[in-house]
């Protein structure tokens, strides 16, 4: 299962400061969409608006709509917890729960939500297999997650996110804290994840966007203090070979940013 995401005139604010300005785009199910752009262009904020994590920061709010298969996640009748259960997230730095074992980390989303399942061990195993971590950790599932390497921790966090069986997976620069080998492992994983999930990835790394994504959105600002705007959104191949906008071209050829 996976869902289509539609952003309609989505603007994000911190207090009175607008950081994302009226972005409209449609993200197709079972695809990988990359959001690229210079630092501070609001791409992470945009991503965090898709699972309503943005609003957990003091003073943060959004305007506009985000539709998941037609339902506005910001509608007053929608429970934010239901949104986040469908839209999972992986963060920039690996953030396993430090007091929990490897097994408990993966099971956390279900166990702590009060879901009682006899096949919890199976779910944990499947999630760890899916992120290619099972063989490395199967003998030490009860050991602390903090003992794993950074790359392993990040794969553990992906396993934790997919164990609750979401339909959309948001990834906020998931490789920026990792070495090249771990990065490659995660990138391969993303290619597999799109068979089951709608993946949206924010990345600084244009090569990475070109390697893993089907569609790419370029977001940028007119200058410091201006909100991020969507400049171009196209098929990844097209965007990187024949960008339609001059600003996209400048950015991907390294002239700015």
């Amino acid at each position: 299962m996976s869902r289509r995401i539609e952003l309609h005139d989505l603007s994000c604010y911190y207090g009175n400061r607008k950081v994302v300005d009226r972005i409209t785009m449609t993200i197709e199910p079972k695809s990988v969409t990359a959001i690229i752009g210079p630092s501070g262009c609001g791409k992470s904020t945009l991503l965090r608006a898709i699972n309503r994590l943005h609003e957990t920061l003091p003073g943060a709010r959004v305007e506009g709509r985000v539709l998941l298969d037609g339902d506005n996640i910001y509608d007053r009748s929608i429970d934010v917890v239901d949104v986040r259960r469908i839209v999972g997230m992986v963060f920039q730095r690996p953030n396993p729960f430090p007091t929990m074992s490897i097994h408990d980390n993966v099971a956390a989303g279900l166990k702590l939500a009060g879901v009682r399942r006899r096949d919890l061990d199976d779910i944990v195993e499947k999630a760890l297999i899916a992120v290619h971590l099972w063989n490395e950790v199967k003998d030490r599932l009860r050991r602390p997650a903090s003992a794993l390497s950074g790359g392993q921790q990040q794969r553990l966090c992906i396993a934790r996110a997919i164990a609750v069986q979401p339909e959309v997976l948001l990834m906020d620069e998931p490789c920026s804290a990792l070495d090249p080998i771990s990065t490659l492992a995660i990138e391969d994983l993303i290619a597999e994840l799109k068979n089951d999930f709608t993946v949206v990835i924010v990345t600084h790394n244009m090569q990475q966007a070109a390697r893993v994504s089907d569609m790419t959105a370029f977001v940028t600002v007119d200058g410091p203090g201006h909100p991020g705007r969507l400049v171009e959104y196209a098929d990844t191949k097209t965007l990187f070979s024949v960008p339609a906008d001059k600003r996209t071209e400048d950015y991907i050829t390294g002239r700015v940013g």
Partner: peptide
């Protein structure tokens, strides 16, 4: 904060994030 956000992103309620994470 990232620890709390990891909990929210799993669809956990706020009190649960406080108590268990």
């Amino acid at each position: 904060r990232t620890l709390r956000e990891a909990g929210y992103a799993l669809g956990l309620r706020r009190w649960r994030v406080v108590v268990s994470i």
